[in-house]
């Protein structure tokens, strides 16, 4: 369990560090891209549905898979559309 906590603390520092120099025009695309990345909960949803015992767990799991997919797919597509707009005026 302490291993997992170590990973958490290190990832938190990396997370702070990696976006510390973002330019203002990229605030919204970055938020949207990060939004797509937390759709990785889809991995968790697949794992619990794959091991589901009983109808309740199966239904909850499948609903989670559906919602997480919307998060992932929608997130990446909408971010790409936003960045498409910047094509014309790169700095």
């Amino acid at each position: 369990m302490i291993d997992l906590l170590t990973i958490f603390v290190l990832a938190a520092f990396v997370g702070f560090e990696v976006v510390s120099k973002v330019s203002t025009i990229l605030h919204t695309p970055l938020m949207s891209g990060a939004n797509a990345i937390h759709g990785v909960i889809l991995v968790g949803a697949i794992l619990i549905t794959g091991a589901a015992e009983g109808a309740v767990q199966l239904v909850l799991g499948l609903l989670a898979v559906f919602l997480a997919t919307v998060n992932v797919v929608g997130g990446f597509v909408v971010t790409d559309r936003m960045l498409e707009m910047f094509k014309g005026h790169k700095r």
């Binding site: 938190a12 990396v14 702070f16 990696v18 990060a34």
Partner: peptide, 12 residues
Amino acid sequence: AGTLVGASGTLL
């Protein structure tokens, strides 16, 4: 992944 988003999102 969750922590990366949590931390970068807070700073953002």
